[in-house]
Design a binder for these strands. Structure first.
Length: 580
DNA sequence: TTAGGGTTAG
């Protein structure tokens, strides 16, 4: 009689991976015990690994089961190391490493062990420990293993030792493809995009992971154009993309506010029948939200079976910056109800949500709940949000006393929010103070908030480069414009259209408020400059006003997005209801 | 049964 053999996982183990509760896991455990399956050490190993890796919240139960085993196999101990660094418990991971090296039945760490040990070290973030582990790797002879090497490279990069990796792994041996990919990824993550790309271009056998690492690097460092160009290159070279590639593509579209390209990417995902898991789903929600299509963002959001803190936070952030503050707060309540723990970013979204509808007291309560209820430490961003919250609501005195009571030094954005409010609420004295602080902090180098200065040209002329950039998408193509920039090939047509807009604005009674646009350009040019509708800086009052008018005159919906808000202009009104 | 590449704010 032929004995029953399973190819791959035992059906019970497959079932185990879909368990939602500890009770279900225990049931399967009991069943496997009754069926005598655990006499096979391999089966016990499968059980422990499956629970630890797929159901990390019940990892302790898997350890209990492991303890019943006198001689746990190496693979299981390795899996437990991996499971623990995955749930950010590096010390436990070290513990299982010690179980391996001190085992009474002569276990020897293998290449898997070191891969996981190195990842554990990266999490601990202690250079001495990392170097000690590197020593062990060499001692055991695993420094030649591509996977171990690749983990070492990313660990060194995280420690800020990218150059060390380059010396060891690029200069001495000809790197294999796994090592090269790791180096591309590590360089890209560290922001060294130029050398990442050089290495990438030199690689004879780039696989999908290499392309994805390069693209992700561009996205992470805000180079959406390069990321999309790389994606087009991928397409033209016939490289088959996967979910991770599309996450980066969507993120690039989100950075650009490129709705048409984002929609195309969504269709493409469906066409390829890629699996829209929680990560890809969150990226979709974020893309639609950042491109201002909140209806579609929420449609995707509700269609997702699994939602994690990223998904909820993206949707909340989208609602908040698009002016739906109450909906943002409501979503937060639902998130808690769903049992998803908020993180620091969630509170940024929530506080922006409070600001856009002027809910100061609610904002205060949420801010306090961060440490009191959720054990989260408010960061400079949260303090900045609070200043913006008081400022937008016109409660300037509270804003300044909040700034004065802050335990951390306020950063330029906090003063910027206050300065903006001072302009709207015409508080010259506080405005001057805020401006002074900004110049102190930045020396005017970034020039971000200088367009809010009201005192005329003299003071601002000391400020050298005012940097302002706008992007806009037309027919699936993204265009970038800088102030005073005439390099666009269709400049003549653009100029003509701008003139038409100017003319019609003038007919409608518009007079450019050039005082708030203090760039190093001629007076006539200034008037034109105020008409550019999409800005990366905070939308100034003139832009706000003029965009309202354009939306009415040309009967167009206009979505303007900048670093911290989106504005929807229709029929001469703006979605911000005055809170901007 | 275990290894590389992925998302959120400012």
């Amino acid at each position: 009689m032929r004995s029953l053999r399973y190819v791959g996982k035992h059906p019970n183990v497959v079932l185990l991976e879909t368990c939602k509760t500890l009770k279900q896991i225990k049931q399967i455990h009991t069943q496997m015990l009754i069926n005598g399956l655990f006499t096979d050490l391999k089966m016990l190993g499968q059980f422990v690994s499956a629970v630890a890796l797929k159901q990390p919240e019940y990892i302790d139960y898997s350890i209990q089961v492991l303890e019943q085993c006198e001689r746990p196999p190496l693979a299981v101990l390795n899996s437990l190391m991996r499971a623990h660094y995955k749930i950010a418990k590096p010390c436990k991971s070290f513990y299982f490493y010690s179980r391996i090296v001190k085992s009474s039945h002569n276990l020897k760490p293998d290449n898997y062990t070191f891969t996981f040990l190195i990842r554990t070290c990266a999490q601990l973030f202690v250079e001495e420990t990392s170097m000690a582990v590197y020593g062990s790797v060499i001692k055991y002879g695993f420094d030649v293993d591509p996977h171990v090497r690749s983990s070492l490279i990313s660990m060194f990069a995280e420690l800020g030792l990218l150059g060390f990796s380059k010396k060891i792994f690029l200069e001495i041996f000809e790197p294999d493809s796994v090592t090269s990919t790791a180096m591309v990824s590590a360089s890209a993550k560290s922001g060294d995009l130029v050398s990442a790309r050089e290495l990438f271009d030199r690689m004879p056998d780039r696989d999908l992971a290499t392309w994805n690492a390069m693209m992700a690097g561009y996205v992470q460092w805000g180079q959406a154009r390069e990321a999309l160009d790389l994606f087009y290159l991928m397409q033209s070279e016939g490289v088959k993309v996967n979910e991770a590639s599309m996450v980066s593509v969507l993120s690039a579209c989100a950075q650009f506010g490129a709705l048409d390209q984002g929609r195309w990417a969504h269709n493409y995902i469906e066409k390829l029948r890629l699996r829209v898991d929680v990560t890809l789903g969150s990226a979709l929600v974020d893309m639609y939200a950042k491109c201002g299509d909140m209806d579609k963002a929420m449609e995707v959001f509700w269609s997702l079976k699994e939602k994690n803190v990223y998904t909820w936070t993206s949707a909340m952030g989208g609602l908040a910056v698009n002016g739906f503050g109450n909906e943002c707060l409501e979503l937060f309540a639902r998130m808690k109800h769903a049992g998803v723990e908020p993180n620091e970013v969630t509170f940024v979204s929530l506080l922006i949500g409070c600001r856009v509808v002027g809910l100061v007291e609610e904002g205060q309560r949420y801010f306090e709940s961060m440490s009191n209820v959720y054990g989260l430490q408010p960061s400079i961003e949260h303090y900045g949000c609070m200043v913006a919250l008081y400022s937008s609501a016109g409660r300037l005195d509270e804003a300044i006393s909040f700034i004065n009571s802050m335990p951390i030094k306020p950063h330029v954005d906090a003063w910027g929010a206050l300065l903006n409010a001072c302009k709207i609420y015409k508080n010259k004295k506080l405005g001057k103070l805020a401006f002074k602080k900004i110049v102190e902090l930045e020396g005017g180098a970034r020039g971000t908030y200088l367009n809010f200065m009201r005192t005329g040209r003299g003071e601002v002329s000391q400020v050298t480069e005012v940097w302002d950039c706008s992007t806009t998408e037309a027919n699936g193509e993204v265009h970038k414009f800088f102030i005073g920039d005439k390099s666009n090939p269709r400049q003549a047509e653009i100029k003509k259209k701008m003139e038409e807009i100017s003319q019609r604005l003038k007919l409608a009674g518009y007079v450019a408020n050039t005082i708030s646009v203090l760039f190093d350009i001629e007076e006539e040019e200034k008037e034109n400059a105020t008409c550019v509708p999409v800005k990366n800086l905070r939308v100034c009052s003139d832009c706000h006003h003029v965009t309202k008018m354009i939306s009415e005159i040309f009967d167009r919906e206009i979505i303007v997005r900048n670093t911290n808000s989106s504005y929807h202009f229709t029929n001469g009104e703006c979605s911000c209801n005055g809170y901007w």
